[in-house]
Design a binder for these strands. Structure first.
Lengths: 128, 128
DNA sequence: TGACAAATGCAACTAAGTTGCATATAATTC
DNA sequence: GAATTATATGCAACTTAGTTGCATTTGTCA
């Protein structure tokens, strides 16, 4: 027997699908509450952990001292606006060359990487 | 009156100088204890926070659910071995082009980025 | 419909980091 | 070298993020 379909798990996946930027556990709980699913935080932690380990969601850090999650999809990076906190996505992988060189020069075999950009979105540039 | 030179702060800086990879608060406290500086964790948190805000140290995350710190120096990235946990440094900034393109195509002005590589160091590749 | 693994809820816990407040200590000035 | 004062420290208590143990419930499958 494998992954079961339960109201909590379904709702979490549904929320992740509808979210435009990575969400934290608190946001998931809020979503469940607002949909009248009285869920315990432990359930959320266990579900998200399971989804993460099964490779269905991505676990991210943005210097907040907590994790954020998003559905796994095409490889991409994030643009985090330090003005308004908005998180956008950017595609593109410029790092193949760099990873090849790392292997060539030092023998370290890169399996994956974390690359996030911090700066100001267009709106926040205008504000200042 | 600005930053004071105190035994705790001096020792923390000394430890950071001698560390070859980013350290966490626990390691700093251990270091202080082993040097007979009976220090409170609050002191360590406040000192490291101050050093971080003053731009003297870098605050890093490696998916551990806590922060690590290192003295600020030349811009570089890290190679984190998921086998043994060893953290090496790599220099080089391949991202200028990418950041220019991000600005050109979407107007997002990148101020800084986080780029870390996860994989296997030479030794751990052999082990498996 | 019974069986059983998987999921949940609760309470209690850990780990990382923070806050308030009283005390101590560098550094500056006289 | 003592007085001053901003800065730093220590303690206790707290918060926030995440975990664990255990008893109960719920999907799923045969």
């Amino acid at each position: 027997m494998d992954l079961k379909s339960t109201p909590a798990r379904d709702a979490i996946l549904c929320f992740l699908k509808s979210s435009k930027s990575p969400v934290d556990v608190e946001q998931i709980i809020e979503y469940l509450r607002s949909n009248n699913l009285n869920t315990n935080k432990v359930t959320v932690y266990r579900n998200i952990e399971r989804l993460y380990k099964d490779g269905e969601v991505e676990r991210l850090e943005f210097g907040e001292g907590k994790f954020r999650y998003e559905l796994k999809k095409n490889h991409h990076h994030h643009l985090i606006c330090t003005g308004c906190g908005k998180i956008e996505e950017v595609e593109g992988d410029f790092l193949n060359k760099m990873e090849e060189e790392i292997y060539r020069t030092g023998g370290f075999k890169v399996k994956n990487h974390v690359l996030e950009f911090y700066g100001l979105c267009r709106k926040c540039q205008i504000k200042n």
